[in-house]
Design a binder for these strands. Structure first.
Ligand code: NAD
Ligand code: NAD
Lengths: 220, 220
DNA sequence: TACTACCTGTGAAATATTTCACAGCAGAAT
DNA sequence: ATTCTGCTGTGAAATATTTCACAGGTAGTA
């Protein structure tokens, strides 16, 4: 992947988390927030947080900290410059449905416009406002609905082929839940989310922490 | 989180990915692999890969590169020193079932031993060998089954409380799919996996890449 | 044996990322 | 008006992570 982004990936991830946190934190009581408080909530250091806001050109006030509403807008402007973006889900099994259930309606700018599957049982059913099409229709639907992103929740055997079809139809970025290394053109962005790797990772920490202080009766 | 790990987190993540890749790559034809080849597959640089293997004390041969079988064992030894670890899933809805379906049986050392829910319909059902218990039984079951890790697939409203119960029963690490910031003791490891943040991230790249080279008819 | 080709291991350099630490500001209090 | 408090913005320092670049090794070949 060649990325020509001005915001470093790690900063981007933190900004998304700040925005999410701030939206929950904002209410008539909390119109402003200081970096120390945001640090307590998110776990990032106050200096880090100030620098991140500096990097998107947002200034707070030395008396009240950051005005949450404006800050959210500033983050929006930095990471979501323009118009709505449409998403497809490939593979509408248990995972695909969970994805739609969770994502749909949660963002005004990001919308799931179509699902694809090859099980005749599922074609043309509508789930949470998302219609499922046969994978043969990828080309047509992706163009018609102006879809630029896809979430893959397919068995690994077919993921590569379907992903390539999606790329050919115009998809530029993937969130891939299939446990497979996708081989796609350089200009396509792929974010892999393998749950098994995630579990192995936490397993490593669960072990390192076994010896940690703990008020339980000794597991020995 | 205080982590006293000898392996840096990023290295750990790469090691897990190498292991996964190598397991797929290994066959009678491919008994050895060189760093350049592994680089092509994983996208990490050859120097990075060599350094990672150096960091776990595994040496290759200058003629044939790394012996895959031994390398996998070396990674195992570095990141999975000892015995099996047991996992619980909290919230056995669409996502919880997808998790069990995907994880169970995929690793010999990591096993899902129990699920928890509060919907009477689901209690005592067995899914892929995993029995669902009422959340009131967390304390008892976690100790009985010697569970040290949990995957949270609950609605956010209840996730904090359930997580705290799990911690009190002995859980040391979480994979959290609930869109909520968990507030748990310092010695507990939490890995958050919010799909919405992931989608927002790929959306950012889908935009930056729109202008990328591309053989499609111009979307303009 | 001598030569070639290609690989690993690694010190040192280069980059990327985070933290330190403090000047300077803005409101509150007296 | 002056002082006090606590915060931001930021250069500089500290760390963390990645890459460079090459010495030294091993097999294959003649
Ligand atoms: N990375 C993760 O975190 C994670 C978690 C769970 C599952 N998974 C993976 O995601 C995949 C889906 O999981 P699930 O639990 O939803 O499984 P599932 O069996 O419920 O769903 C798979 C769906 O894909 C469809 N499908 C199969 N082949 C297809 C093809 N060629 N074209 C179009 N659609 C096709 C099936 O009809 C089905 O609807 C699994 O293969 C698993 O490997 C990943
Ligand atoms: N981070 C992600 O990637 C992601 C993706 C999808 C869903 N989610 C989140 O995960 C949650 C579950 O998603 P889903 O699609 O499986 O939803 P779901 O409604 O199918 O399942 C939720 C399950 O939790 C159970 N539950 C509810 N309250 C409970 C409680 N107090 N104690 C025990 N169990 C309880 C319900 O009985 C149900 O079985 C959702 O709330 C959503 O926010 C996250």
């Amino acid at each position: 992947m060649i990325v020509t982004s001005s915001i470093p990936v790690k900063t981007l991830e933190r900004l998304l988390l700040y925005r999410w946190t701030l939206k929950n934190y904002l209410d008539p009581e909390n119109t402003h927030i200081v970096s120390r408080r945001l640090s307590e909530i998110t776990g990032f250091s106050p200096a880090q947080i100030r620098r991140d806001f500096m990097s998107i050109g947002y200034s707070g006030s030395s008396a009240h900290g950051y005005k949450i509403k404006d800050l959210i807008n500033a983050i929006d402007k930095a990471i979501c410059p323009h118009s709505a973006q449409n998403i497809a889900v490939a593979g509408i099994g248990q995972l695909g449905k969970a994805v739609i259930n969770y994502i749909q309606g949660r963002s005004t700018l990001l919308k799931i416009k179509a699902a694809f599957d090859n099980d005749p049982e599922k074609i043309n059913k509508v789930f949470h406002g998302v219609r499922t099409y046969h994978t043969d229709e990828i080309e047509k639907i992706i163009r018609k609905e102006d879809i630029s992103m896809a979430i893959l929740a397919l068995p690994p055997a077919n993921a590569q082929e379907i992903a390539m079809n999606l790329v050919n139809a115009g998809v530029k970025a993937f969130l891939n839940y299939s446990p497979i290394k996708l081989n796609l053109p350089e200009h396509v962005y792929i974010e892999n989310r393998d749950m098994l790797l995630a579990v192995e990772k936490i397993a490593y920490f669960a072990r390192s922490l076994k010896k940690g202080t703990d008020e339980n009766e000794g597991i020995s």
